[in-house]
Design a protein around this nucleic acid. Structure first.
Length: 641
RNA sequence: GCCGAUGUAGCUCAGUGGUAGAGCACUUCCUUGGUAAGGAAGAGGUCAUGGGUUCAAAUCCCAUCAUUGGCUCCA
């Protein structure tokens, strides 16, 4: 009997029932068959070797498909486990999934300390096993048999996983002498895995809970070709070069000091200049968008944070209080309570709303020590904060305007790859993690979804990630090195107006609660500048560059000309300085290149005589000579944003 | 907070029990030069901190602090 298989290009093949995706690949070409890692059958990814028994849509997955790669890495995780089990008998296996770049396996090594010194040995073993070209054999196993197998093998972690599975949905995969509990799918055989690299190890709690035992997570990556591994390692090397911690040091942006404390960055003049530039830009933008600026102190009494709800919910993340005059004072972890007090200080009519209070507010958060990370996770942070107080009728428009502001900023900075995450509450945690106001949650989450849908921006919805006072949108972005984090956030707050007894007088002369929007499109200076360093790899656009122009006199005979030129540029608000060292031009150029200064002005006899400048751009482009004014105008044009 | 790694000059790093090193940067001197490193000399270190072992510790052991790869967390 024949079945009809539809390929992605619409072609239909009549093939005998029971044929595998691999067979179909072979019918198309041997080359394709050699590269098929898995198959997507009617949307579901499965082994390419499984028989096809009915009409289906078939896509052959190779290394060029994300699911092909995932299958490859998943199979590689099995190979890793096989090698580890061969080398370290008696280890117990946790889970071993593929990740975005490679895969890992969580292993209980017992008393053995697995370290980087073991890596070469494991790589060699994996290579040896891969060369055996062992087929990944799938078998369906009854629950009782599965339990019996892992009881015999004495693997408590697998047994725990099996407990949660229903009889009839348990499958094992075997390659060589190694059998693992696994849903699959897998690549045809281990021979596809040609290049192997163990990357690092880390502790990881079993099933992600800190109540459980910590296993050793072994990270690795594999490729079907040696050259691709080399390329990947090269890429990791490049990524390290643009790490904000390295660039921040090299470009003299920020530093940390043990005497100041962990997570408390010190901004060097270059970094402080960037902060200044960003603030100037944000303040102008916010002014145009109808925000008013406010200012508030860095500390407040305990009573305010009790009122705001921060203390019961987030006390652990705040620095411990200081006591004076019989009162407990806390460093602020957020600006919102202060802004609410500013709102409360005056009487408001519905005619005044929306009110938008903006502040670059410095907050202090006691992040757990293990979570600190360069500038991205710190304990003192200055937020591009604002709170919008509006009526329910105004909410939609205000929320959309905030989203539009994000997009405007992202365009300026060339941030193209991001995901909007719509973070909702988990009803089961009302009263604990979230304010116990179920109707408000439902209503505001609906409002947010409506805005997102109508604005047409793609977004994903995630449960149990809301703020305690309401749903939010987080903008997840990837730095150039592929690290993901929340850059900006836009949050609804239906709770604090109540808690702070905030109200405005509506048209019927009644008191009404405003809705509050918290927003921070430019994140914090710390995280944003950390991101920008990586995003631009330190090659900032001229408007952002802390040092825009360096004047390089060929010899000190032309120092006076260099100084007067520098003075001229400063009149145009151009951040210029003279390299006064008694070095040769080549050396000064090299140093300016390394410092990633956008423009170099080389001045010698010719320029001093004609009153011109010889312009070199960072990267080596020679723009030739021009007069001073022409250059100043060039920079001004480039700094318009 | 947890598991692991790391901590030597301003920076990048070498030094595995026996007199603290290199390159760059810095200071001084010479050189006054044309698009990615001119030359010489000098200064600079309680080897993260505190204990311990040893005739002797940067080196071995313990603790603490910091950084870091992850986990957990993330207003």
């Amino acid at each position: 009997m024949n079945i009809r298989i539809t390929l992605p290009d619409g072609a239909v093949k009549e093939v005998p029932q029971g044929i595998s995706a691999l067979d179909i690949a072979r019918m198309i070409s041997e080359g394709l068959a050699r590269n098929v890692l898995a198959a997507r059958v009617n949307g579901k990814v499965q082994d390419a070797a499984l028989p096809l028994n009915e009409d289906a849509e078939l896509q052959l997955l190779t290394w060029n498909d994300t699911d092909g790669k995932k299958t490859f890495w998943h199979s590689s995780a099995h190979l890793l486990a096989e090698a580890l089990e061969a080398l370290y008998p008696g280890i117990k296996l946790g889970i071993g999934p593929p990740i975005d770049n490679g895969f890992y396996y969580d292993i209980d090594f017992g008393d053995y300390k697995f370290s980087s010194e073991d890596f070469a040995k494991v790589e060699a073993k994996m290579t040896e096993l891969a060369k055996q070209e062992n087929t990944f054999l799938r078998s369906e196993v009854a629950k009782a048999d599965a339990i019996a197998y892992f009881t015999e093998k004495n693997d408590p972690y697998k047994l725990e996983l099996i407990q949660d599975l229903a009889d009839g949905e348990i499958t094992f995969y075997q390659q060589g002498n190694f059998t693992d509990l696994c849903r699959g799918p897998h690549i045809p055989n281990t021979g596809f895995i040609k290049a192997i690299k163990i990357l690092n190890t880390a502790g990881a709690y079993w099933r992600g809970s800190e109540k459980n035992k910590q296993l050793t997570r072994v990270y690795a990556i594999t490729f079907p070709k040696r050259a691709e591994l080399d390329e990947h390692l090269q890429m990791l090397e490049e990524a390290r070069k643009r790490d904000h911690r390295k660039l921040g040091k090299d470009l003299e942006i920020f530093t940390f000091d043990d005497d100041v404390g962990p997570g408390l960055p010190l901004w060097l003049p270059n970094g402080a200049q960037m902060i200044e530039t960003l603030e100037t830009f944000a303040k102008k933008t916010e002014k145009e968008a109808g925000y008013q600026r406010v200012k508030s102190p860095h500390i407040a009494k305990e009573s305010m944070y009790l009122k705001s709800g921060h203390l019961p919910y987030y006390a652990e993340s705040m620095f411990p209080p200081m006591e004076l005059d019989g009162e407990r004072y806390y460093l602020k972890a957020m600006n919102c309570p202060h802004h609410h007090k500013i709102f409360a200080a005056q009487q408001h009519s519905y005619k005044d709303l929306p009110l938008r209070y903006a502040e670059y507010g410095t907050c202090y958060r006691y992040e757990q020590s293990g979570e600190l990370f360069g500038l991205m996770r710190v304990r003192s942070l200055t937020m591009n904060d604002a709170h919008i107080y509006c009526t329910e009728a105004q909410f939609e428009q205000e929320f959309m305007a905030v989203n539009a502001l994000y997009l405007k900023y992202f365009k300026v900075f060339g941030i193209e790859k991001y995901v909007m995450r719509f973070s909702k509450h988990d009803p089961a945690k009302l009263g604990q993690k979230y304010m116990n106001m179920p109707e408000k949650w439902q209503k505001t989450e609906e409002m947010v979804r409506k805005v997102l849908v109508s604005s047409g921006i793609p977004f994903v919805e995630v449960e149990d990630e809301a703020a305690f006072y309401g749903p939010k949108i987080d903008i997840q972005i990837w730095s150039a090195i592929g690290r993901e984090f929340t850059l900006a956030t836009n949050q609804v707050d239906f709770a604090q107006a109540e808690r702070f007894d905030l109200y405005f007088t509506n048209e019927k002369s009644e008191k009404e609660r405003p809705l509050i929007i918290h927003r921070a499109p430019l994140s914090t200076h710390e995280r944003f500048i950390g991101f920008l360093l990586e995003h631009y790899a330190g090659n900032f656009p001229v408007w952002l560059a802390p040092r825009q122009v360096v004047v390089l006199p060929i010899s000190d005979k032309y120092m006076d000309y260099a100084q007067s030129l520098c003075g001229f540029l400063k009149k145009y608000d151009i951040r210029a300085f003279v390299d006064e060292r008694a070095e040769k031009a080549g050396k000064k150029i090299r140093d300016a290149e390394v410092a990633k200064i956008p423009y170099m002005l080389i001045v010698g006899e010719k320029e001093a005589g004609s009153g011109e400048v010889s312009v070199r751009k960072h990267g080596g482009t020679d723009l030739g000579s021009m007069n001073q004014l022409a250059f100043a105008e060039l920079i001004q044009a480039e700094t318009e944003i």
